[in-house]
């Protein structure tokens, strides 16, 4: 499935600072078509900043991000929105719209971006996606009535409704119990299989990384210190900080 020849995302020399806090320092990274790339790092290491720059929620100080060969730093809003439709972003806290039911949450991006859909087509798409995240019975519930794991699933379903080619998961297992974490990890893999997406998974959870990632990239002090398969990055690690990250997560 992994096509190492076809890069869907190409990040070069990315720099981002917030005042004196230099979060990303000359970051390079590639995402290949069909792969799940896990970006690991401690809290505050700039993992989320990286994917927020990719979708234009933040602007880089220096460097380029090419998504499908398009440099996102020079786009006007219309062009950026066109690119955003090809990217799904699953937020850490799900970011479901509080005032809308699950159905309305899913319909909201669909009806605003795909014109001339009939009521039947909208319902079919919504129901199909809720089936795919195994939550068809929540369709008329409000987000406040859902558990943390259910919110994550609905959040992922909402991003999938626009058929994105790239999925960005921001801390998909944060704050969930171990069983739900495994369910979410399986869902991330299912999404890749079913919707043929390429994904970047931001996490500090090594179980999630091991279960979902084809490759890992470890972000420490604004740089990717190691990039490669799980075994290469952790089990053969010589870098002290990478090793300590592994040891701490698996309590060896």
């Amino acid at each position: 499935m992994l096509n190492e020849q076809e890069k869907v995302v190409e990040i070069r020399g990315l720099v981002k600072s917030f005042g004196e806090n230099h979060v990303l320092r000359n970051v390079d990274l590639d995402l290949y078509k069909g792969e799940n790339l896990v970006v690991l790092g401690k809290s505050g290491s700039g993992k989320s900043v990286l994917i927020k720059i990719m979708v234009g929620l933040l602007k880089q100080d220096k460097g380029t991000i090419k998504i499908f060969g398009i440099d996102n730093s020079n786009l006007n809003l219309k062009e950026l929105n066109k690119l955003r439709l090809r990217i799904g972003f699953s937020f850490q806290a799900s970011a479901l719209y509080d005032s809308m039911t699950v159905r309305e949450n899913l319909e909201f991006p669909l009806v605003r971006n795909v014109k001339n859909l009939t009521r039947k087509e909208i319902d079919f798409k919504v129901e199909e996606l809720l089936e795919s995240v195994a939550l068809p019975n929540t369709i008329n519930q409000m987000p406040s009535e859902l558990s943390g794991g259910q919110k994550k699933r609905i959040g992922i379903a909402r991003t999938l409704i626009l058929n994105p080619e790239i999925m960005l998961y921001d801390e998909p297992t944060a704050g969930l119990d171990p069983v739900t974490c495994i369910e979410i990890n399986n869902l991330i893999n299912e999404v890749r299989e079913r919707y043929k997406t390429s994904s970047i998974v931001i996490t500090h959870d090594l179980t999630c990384a091991k279960q979902t990632g084809d490759r890992m990239a470890v972000l420490i002090k604004g740089h990717f210190t190691s990039v490669g398969t799980f075994e290469k990055v952790f089990e053969e690690a010589t870098d002290k900080q990478v090793k300590s990250f592994y040891d701490y997560n698996f309590i060896r």
Partner: peptide, 20 residues
Amino acid sequence: AEIGSMNVTEQIDAMEVSAI
């Protein structure tokens, strides 16, 4: 309060990334 809480819980960002 409503818009402030949507801002805090990234609901506004979620609209932006959905091209809304």
